[in-house]
Design a protein around this nucleic acid. Structure first.
Lengths: 201, 201
DNA sequence: TCGCGATTCGGAACGACGTTCCGGTTCGGT
DNA sequence: ACCGAACCGGAACGTCGTTCCGAATCGCGA
């Protein structure tokens, strides 16, 4: 474990001690991946991303040896925004509402990422670091929201935060790039939230 | 639409007007696929199935031109059993319990079929006939159960049967071939069911 | 300013996969 | 027993993820 100032803790791009061209390519790759993922989902062919970045596949693999590294780099920013939103919601509304609002926020995040949830639960070991990154940031946030909502009496059931998060993510897989599918997913997520209110058996 | 006696309505094996060797191979393929799907999930390589059946890939594609045809053939029997179970449950218990029991039965069915739900929602058009077959058999069953439970006052929310079914299936994707994952999924499905009891907003 | 070595680049190459295709084989009615 | 139709098997093609290495490039020290 040589300690040479990693910019992120998930194996993504190192921004120090890098040649200028290398860094330029890494940035171009993240940008290209962002576009391609949005258009074709996270399962998009690697070569498509490399081509769009004007770079060979070798270069892509040099910077992101694991497929999950590239995905992490692309979604880390949005993930942070999602976590930050929780703090604002906690401050602005009662626990029960904050919980609902944040879950719906999370739903919106996942629903637009075609194939993200599928990748996370594919069992493919290559995605475990990515799943871990999500869990590290998201699970504590949800735990806080759940605890507060229980303390205030807004919800009556105690559930495992990781389980609940995985469930919500799973609920958002649905029907490819089609447009109005999001309505269906949101309805089912709301149903799940309603379940938290119903008395435990 | 030439009407020459199809044994099933989803494009699977024709059991009439077939040479004896052809039919033997078709049966061997279904049997092999059953084993392989159970061991490695529905995404298992085609060649694995052909090898296990002692047959070339050409033969496999001759009998099942669409991947979904093979999957249909394998799961149709279990699917029928699932539908039949609903009738027994309706006769044996009150509507609310019957609904719960059948949904958990369905959960058990889907949970053991690695990748089935993922395939159904992959957006790949090859799976649309399969999805249609599931919907045709399962949706009316769930609609009946839901209506009865509403009429008896056991549940208070009205939901779309197809949506709910898709949601339950999605909930069961989780974590690959690992063993005790089913507990998590069942818990979340129960939470969804609890949501049906909570008063509509 | 120049040179040289470490670093990075690009794409050819490999293996796995789904799918198509066709020459050879086998069935089964006559 | 014969012959055409139906069927079989696996070679072959295109796509994908991933690895590998000779060639090109950068940037530090002189």
């Amino acid at each position: 474990m040589s300690a040479v100032s990693r910019t992120s803790d998930d194996g993504a791009v190192e921004h120090r001690r890098m040649r200028a061209d290398a860094r330029g390519n890494a940035d171009a790759l993240v940008e290209a991946a962002t576009t391609v993922f949005a258009e074709a989902g996270v399962a998009a062919p690697v070569r498509t991303i490399a081509d769009r970045a004007g770079v060979g596949v070798g270069t892509l693999y040099r910077h992101f040896p694991l497929r999950s590294d590239l995905i992490s780099a692309v979604f880390r920013r949005e993930l942070d925004a999602c976590v930050d939103a929780a703090e604002e919601m906690e401050a602005a509304m009662p626990p029960g509402e904050a919980l609902d609002a944040w879950i719906m926020r999370f739903t919106g995040f996942v629903a637009t990422k075609q194939g993200l949830a599928a990748a996370l639960h594919s069992g493919d070991t290559a995605y475990e670091p990515l799943a871990a990154a999500f869990a590290t940031r998201l699970v504590p946030t949800l735990e806080r929201l759940l605890s507060a909502a229980i303390a205030s009496g807004d919800i009556s059931r105690r559930v495992d935060a990781a389980e609940f998060l995985a469930a919500v993510a799973n609920l958002c897989h649905g029907g490819g790039p089609s447009s109005r599918a999001s309505g269906r997913e949101a309805r089912m997520v709301r149903l799940l939230l309603a379940g938290l209110r119903s008395p435990a058996d």
